Amino acid sequence: MILIIGEPGDRHVRHVTARLDARGSPYFLFDPRRYPSSAELTVDYDRTGAVRRFLTCADKRLDLADVRAAWHRARVRPTPAPDVPEDQAWWVAETCARFLSQLYECLDCRWIPERPASASAPLYQEDADPPACAPWAALPVRNQAPSPENKLHQLSVAGRVGFAVPRTLVTNSPERFLDFYDACDGGLISKRAVNLAPRVGGVATRPYTVSARRRDAANSSAVRHAPVMFQEKVPKRLELRVTVVGRRVFAVEIQSQDSYRQQTDWRHHPEYGQSQFYATHVLPEAIERRCVQVVEALGLTFGAIDLILTPDGEYVFLEVNINGQWAYLEDMLALPISDAIAELLIDGTAYLDCTIPATAENPGPGA
């Protein structure tokens, strides 16, 4: 299958589709202006990080795993639905544009002219006034690996090195959301699909991870307006912030379940930053190596990884913050993170051989 990202009225698109029709080559035409109001994108992951991606437009459904070549012709942005409030329209359009770029990055196929890169999306300060007409966020600039900030890519990488990940759905389809809600018996959390905060009444917000509730299912039509990331609610014994510097690993456990306020998102409430909820943590050697492998597979030398330790003793990967905060951990627990960064800057010292044998269950970062 050939994916054409373009406008039906573009004569360049008409010329090429005429030639494809003459040759009997199937193609799927996607106009980004139809997303999210009349097009649906759904990405879902199982607990091993295996992924499925679907695009539905004009009652036609495309399994993106079938795409063997893509032509990125469009120079247009997603268009919010008419009923989106005026102060939210820019956020919806920008969120959708960035999400499209992340999705394109993850499609392993032939690209013309080049595979788009999500890192090229314009990054505005959350407290800055949005421009009247934001630049196109998916301009093709390279044909390399996906950006390390791409959360879709991070989940796949984590699964490849052997981590369990939460069952995950990213969608703007109310129907897919409800199906996932039922499949998880209502035990879901929701997150931003991209790292961009909306403005409400002209004031920048800081959205946190929240539990999906019955009222969210009852108001499922709101999902249509922009992609949302939903994940199964993983039971927690502890949460961990694992800071990787080169091949040094500093693991801190967060007793988030000791406080009702912290149980869903430990950053959300006043207990965040209080030392009684933090302690150093000794990771199993295999988990420590996987943390290093994830960071290296993303092309990084530093990463702050969020994990969950379940009551059954399983370590579940959530995400990597490529420039995550760590000074408060060093101050509270006397961790030598700044020393490790200084040494890495000076001589690039590596402290851990993270090579482990590849197996069917753990094929390694190059698989």
Rank of each mutant, 00 (worst) to 15 (best):
Y315C: 00
D179N: 07
R61N: 09
R289K: 12
V295K: 02
H12E: 09
Y45S: 00
Q144H: 14
V161W: 07
Y328Q: 13
T349L: 13
G364F: 01
I341F: 12
R115Y: 06
A197R: 08
Y278H: 10
Y208M: 15
L238F: 06
H72P: 00
E285P: 07
D31G: 08
E149I: 02
T301R: 13
A58L: 13
G313T: 07
Y272T: 06
D63A: 14
G201Y: 00
E253I: 02
Q88P: 01
A58Y: 09
H72Y: 12
R14N: 03
W136N: 05
C106P: 05
A217N: 03
H269Q: 10
H269R: 10
I4D: 02
S259N: 13
R23K: 11
P357E: 09
L329K: 01
T171C: 03
F30T: 01
L333Y: 01
Q262M: 15
A304V: 13
R68P: 01
D108W: 05
I356D: 04
Y272C: 10
A222L: 14
L139N: 07
Y27T: 08
P174I: 05
T56M: 12
R290H: 01
W266F: 15
D83E: 14
A297Q: 08
H225E: 12
L352G: 08
L152T: 05
W71T: 05
A119D: 11
V43N: 00
S275C: 10
E343V: 13
W111D: 08
V252T: 13
L240T: 07
Q263S: 12
T79M: 13
I4C: 03
P270N: 10
T205Q: 06
A132T: 13
G364K: 04
I189L: 14
Y351L: 14
V228M: 10
L169A: 05
V245L: 03
A39T: 09
D347V: 10
Q276C: 10
T171K: 00
R215L: 14
I287F: 05
E149H: 05
G187R: 15
L123M: 13
R52T: 11
M332R: 03
A119C: 12
G202T: 00
Y45F: 15
V242M: 01
L62T: 02
C109F: 02
E105Y: 04
R110M: 13
S156Y: 02
V282N: 11
P131Q: 01
G6T: 08
Q325Y: 07
F230C: 02
F163G: 09
R77Q: 12
V295M: 11
P78N: 09
N150I: 03
E105L: 04
P78Y: 09
A132I: 12
S156H: 10
V294C: 09
S147F: 01
A39Q: 07
A89S: 14
P148C: 03
H268W: 09
R19T: 12
H15D: 14
S211R: 15
T359I: 06
R289T: 11
S101F: 02
E114A: 15
C106V: 11
S211D: 08
R115H: 05
P146V: 04
